[in-house]
C-alpha cells in the first residue's frame, strides 16, 4: 500500500497550476486535501505521475453576489458548519455537511476534491445536484461552466478533462422564503450512505413555489425526482403528504443491492428518508419547526 512514483509540483497561482496540468495532461492530477486521492494512490487504484498541489491557490473563499453563492474549490467541508451564508441560503447543505466523514476529513477535504472524486453517495455531490449548482472548470484554454447533473457522469467519473482544474462551484441563491433538509443512513456514522435524501423547498408561507429534491444511493450518481418536484409546485404546503411522497419515491427508485444492503431495503429506505426530509421541510415552512 505504497503509491507508485510521482513528481510533486507546488502550484503558486491558478495560472501556474493550469500550466502544470496542461503540461502533464492525463498524467497530472491536482491534489488538495488528499482525503480520497491519497488512499486511491496508496491502493494503486490511482497512479498519477505528477501531482499538482493546489492548496496554496486563491480558491478558498465563499462569496456572494446578487443571485449566487460562489464556493471556491479549496473550501474545506468544516467551513460550512459555521458560515452565515450557508446557514442563510443553503440550509440543506448545512445539514448534509454533518454527515460527511469524520472531523479530520471535514477539516482537510475540499469541495473541489469531493466533486472530482464523485463517490455515488457523497453529500456535496448531492448538494450540488439539489441546488442546480454550476461547476466552473478552468484550463489554459479558458473557463467553462457545467451543470452539476452533467458534471457527474457516473461512479467516480466526471466531466473533468485532462488539463482542467475545478476552481469554483456556483450555487444559485433561493428566491424568497425557503427551507432545506437532508437525511441519510449509513452503516456507521461517517460512512458513505446506503441511502440519502435532500429537499429544498421555496415557498410563500402557504404554498409551494418550488420543490427540489435529491436522492443518493438510488443510482451511481445523485438523482432528482423531477416528476414529484413538478407535481408539488403551486400546491398548498398543507397539502404536501410526506407519507405518500415517500411511497412514491420508493416506487420510482430502483437501486441495486449488495452484501451490505438489499435492493428492497434501499428502495424503502430512500422512500422513508424522502418522507422524513419532506415532513421536516414542510413543518419548517409552515412555521411548526
Amino acid at each position: 500500500m505504497r503509491p507508485t512514483e510521482f513528481a510533486y509540483h507546488r502550484a503558486e497561482t491558478i495560472e501556474h497550476a493550469l500550466a502544470l496540468l496542461a503540461e502533464h495532461g492525463e498524467d497530472g492530477r491536482p491534489i488538495s486535501g488528499g482525503q480520497s486521492l491519497v488512499p486511491m494512490m496508496n491502493l494503486r487504484l490511482a497512479r498519477p505521475a505528477h501531482l499538482v498541489d493546489v492548496n496554496h491557490l486563491d480558491m478558498a473563499r465563499i462569496e456572494e453576489d446578487a443571485d449566487t453563492i460562489r464556493i471556491g474549490a479549496l473550501v474545506r467541508h468544516e467551513t460550512y458548519l459555521t458560515h452565515p451564508l450557508i446557514a442563510r441560503h443553503l440550509p440543506a447543505m448545512l445539514e448534509a455537511v454533518h454527515w460527511i466523514g469524520h472531523p479530520t476529513i471535514r477539516r482537510n477535504g475540499s469541495i473541489g476534491g469531493s466533486l472530482c472524486h464523485a463517490d455515488p453517495t457523497a453529500e456535496l455531490a448531492a448538494m450540488a445536484v439539489l441546488h442546480d449548482a454550476r461547476i466552473v472548470l478552468a484550463s489554459t484554454g479558458g473557463r467553462r461552466e457545467v451543470a452539476a447533473v452533467d458534471f457527474l457522469k457516473g461512479a467516480y467519473v466526471t466531466d473533468v478533462q485532462p488539463g482542467e482544474l475545478l476552481v469554483e462551484v456556483i450555487f444559485p441563491k433561493p428566491t424568497g422564503p425557503h427551507v432545506g433538509t437532508f437525511d441519510e443512513v449509513g452503516e456507521r456514522l461517517g460512512d458513505f450512505a446506503i441511502g440519502s435524501f435532500g429537499v429544498r423547498l421555496e415557498h410563500d408561507g402557504t404554498r409551494v413555489r418550488r420543490l427540489a429534491t435529491v436522492c443518493g444511493g438510488a443510482r451511481m450518481v445523485p438523482i432528482r425526482m423531477t416528476e414529484l418536484e413538478a407535481g408539488a409546485a403551486g400546491q398548498p404546503l398543507s397539502a404536501l403528504d410526506p407519507v405518500a411522497f415517500g411511497q412514491k419515491v420508493t416506487a420510482m427508485v430502483s437501486p441495486s443491492g449488495d452484501f451490505r444492503a438489499s435492493a428492497e431495503y434501499r428502495r424503502n429506505l430512500i422512500g422513508e428518508l424522502a418522507s422524513r426530509t419532506l415532513q421536516r421541510a414542510r413543518d419548517q415552512a409552515m412555521g411548526m419547526k
Binding site: 452503516e187 446506503i194 451490505r260 444492503a261 431495503y265 424503502n268
Partner: peptide, 8 residues
C-alpha cells in the same frame, strides 16, 4: 445485524 438485516 446490519440496518438492512434488521429492516428485513
Amino acid at each position: 445485524l446490519t440496518a438492512s438485516a434488521i429492516w428485513h
